[in-house]
Computed example of a mutant assay.
Amino acid sequence: MMILLGMFSVQAAANDGWSSYKSRFMAADGRIKDTANNNVSHTEGQGFAMLLAVDNNDRQSFDRLWQWTRSHLSNAQNGLFYWRYNPDASDPIVDKNNASDGDVLIAWALLRAGEKWNVADYLKQSDKIQRSIVSRNVTTFGGYSVMLPGAQGFNKTSYVVLNPSYFLFPAWRDFARRSHLKVWNQLIEDGFTLLGKMNNFGRSALPLDWVALNADGSLAPAIAWPPRFSYDAIRIPLYIWWYDPQSLRLVPFQHYWAGYSRLQTPAWINVSNNEAAPYNMDGGLLAVRDLTMGDTAQLSSSLDAQENYYSASLRLLVWSAWQSRQAN
């Protein structure tokens, strides 16, 4: 009886967190609002929420999320999705580019939903998106297979720009299992190799939000962004952990964060000059730290009253990653 009550409590906590998330960030039509960014929407947010709907066995919400995404963000020209939607603009989609992490998240959520609820159309749509990602976003450069952040603007001829937080290892693994295409396993292998090569950017040995991969295979901070391990790169240890909680690629994050007490850990660091953020991790960022450090007693799906969309998404994704391991 105590075991059953414990299981019920965990499930109730998960559902409460998901219910709070929906009430705060999901419009009635299935659009996810980025509350820290003028309530615009992104494929990232749609993908996050679709994954969370699957994990919370909420097919009704999943269908609303998917239908809004499909209706408003689909790019018929390339089989991918417009990355940003501004509801207040005369043209809500000014930038016609995609964001490959959003595309991967959507395809991954459809794959997981199709398998969970036995819906063939979800699987068919996921397969189509996967093929478009490979066709439009995956390339070989500098001796590595990489997924560019978008179909346009990131191949500079002499180098390509990468966002390591788009290295969605657990999704790529599921795509490999589904399609049997070697490209997904190659992306995993080369992605981990590239993360290892980022250890020499600075004393912290941490990767950056944005990186340039040169034609000779060397890496450098991308010039258009601050050389920080920050709000993008915080997803890297989450995706590594979700792929393999024992991965040695988690060690640099563990070593760096071990130098700070839990509630005094800077929210970001400039890896070139070691300048740290003047404020500390909280919310979803702290949840990623807790997961990576093995401090799982701190994990929860309960959202703070003032938590914004991104922090709440990270917190619930961490919870999903953790719960998926407990179920295995």
Rank of each mutant, 00 (worst) to 15 (best):
N56A: 13
L148D: 01
S90M: 12
R136L: 07
D101F: 11
D29G: 05
G79A: 04
A28S: 14
Q46W: 09
L51R: 07
A27L: 14
Q77H: 12
S100Q: 02
R31D: 03
N57E: 13
G150Y: 09
Y144W: 05
G45L: 03
G17L: 09
D16G: 06
N118P: 01
A89W: 07
K33F: 05
D63A: 11
A49P: 05
L65W: 09
S145Y: 11
V54S: 09
W108F: 13
S135N: 13
N78T: 03
R131P: 00
N118L: 12
W83R: 08
N137G: 10
K124N: 12
L123T: 11
N56W: 09
S100G: 03
F25I: 03
D55H: 14
V134T: 06
D101Y: 11
Q125N: 13
N75R: 12
G150E: 04
I93C: 03
N118I: 11
S132K: 02
Y122S: 10
N97Y: 04
S74G: 00
N37T: 06
W117H: 08
D95L: 02
D63R: 12
S23A: 15
L52F: 08
L110D: 05
D88T: 14
Y122R: 06
R112M: 12
S41H: 03
A36N: 09
R136F: 07
T35G: 08
F62Y: 13
K116W: 05
N86W: 00
N98G: 07
N97I: 04
L111D: 09
H42R: 10
W66M: 12
N56E: 06
S90P: 09
Y144L: 04
Q46M: 14
G142P: 07
L52R: 08
